[in-house]
């Protein structure tokens, strides 16, 4: 796996107040819960390692304001009706029936929903930037690619718009952009990473439910968090090795 040693200008260490950082740093607070990722174990400390970006979603913190969806739309000019990121609301009623909805209209505000449920929660979704991404595999022209720092991107100048990657993505993260007519998806705000900024959804999440960081840095907030808290991946059985780690994810989420 990747080794890492990287400092300072990471988006996840931005000047925002990072309550999570505190939580992670304080031995009083954290109880190792037996789910330590192995990838952060091989820091050799020699020289500068390129970052290896990954994402975490704390589903226990998301409160469904959809600020991420608005920010993503504004940051990336995502047209109406397609989504680089979205927030799902799960309602599991007393008969164990699962109801899911997404705030799809212009303002991305959830409609009132009937109460009396066994449990209910929000799950933000985005591209998983899989280590073994199917979309890259199936792109016939090499317009889908992965950067060395672990971000899956689309070459909009080379894409022919066949839609095969849209079919291949198990997470529904890709779409054909109705304006450019080529495949489109979350980029982890690659243009922001290049400037040391966090992705727009991470920046604007008021609850720190979205976290971003460098897996090559064992001290990054993300690496620390993934050592300390149990998480789940989406559809791991498909062998895509997704890189969005879902903290506190309910078993019903796919």
């Amino acid at each position: 796996m990747k080794t890492r040693n990287r400092k300072s200008d990471r988006p996840d260490e931005s000047r925002r107040h990072l309550l999570k950082l505190l939580a992670a740093g304080s031995g009083l607070l954290v109880f190792p819960l037996g789910s330590l990722p192995t990838r952060a174990s091989a820091a050799d400390g020699t020289g500068e390692r390129p970052p290896y970006w990954a994402y975490a979603v704390d589903t226990t913190r998301c409160m469904g304001c959809c600020a991420c969806m608005r920010a993503c739309r504004d940051e990336n000019g995502v047209p109406k009706g397609v989504f680089r990121t979205w927030v799902e609301r799960y309602r599991i009623d007393l008969d164990d029936e699962v109801h899911v909805d997404v705030a799809m209209h212009d303002d991305f505000v959830f409609a009132p929903a009937p109460g009396d449920v066994a449990r209910a929660f929000f799950v933000p979704k985005l591209c998983n930037h899989c280590e073994k991404s199917v979309c890259n595999q199936v792109c016939p022209v090499g317009a889908a690619y992965r950067t060395a720092d672990g971000v899956v991107l689309v070459d909009a100048e080379h894409c022919i718009g066949c839609g095969y990657c849209v079919q291949a993505c198990p997470y529904g993260s890709r779409f054909i952009n109705p304006e450019s007519h080529v495949a489109d998806k979350c980029t982890f705000c690659y243009h922001r990473l290049a400037r040391g900024l966090a992705p727009a959804c991470v920046l604007t999440c008021p609850r720190e439910a979205r976290l971003f960081g460098d897996l090559n840095d064992p001290q990054s907030k993300l690496s620390v968090l993934l050592r300390q808290r149990p998480y789940r991946l989406l559809k791991p059985e498909l062998g895509t090795h997704p890189k969005c780690y879902y903290l506190g994810l309910d078993r019903e989420v796919v």
Binding site: Q137, V138, V141, H158, C159, C162, I176, H181, V182
Partner: peptide
């Protein structure tokens, strides 16, 4: 296929830069 492609003028990319990891590249 050409009617379906979002960018039909780039159709020949499939032979110019075929990605043989893709089932479609053989077309």
């Amino acid at each position: 296929l050409l009617m379906h492609l979002g960018q039909p003028q780039r159709a020949f990319n499939i032979m110019i830069t075929p990605n043989f990891a893709s089932a479609m590249a053989g077309f």
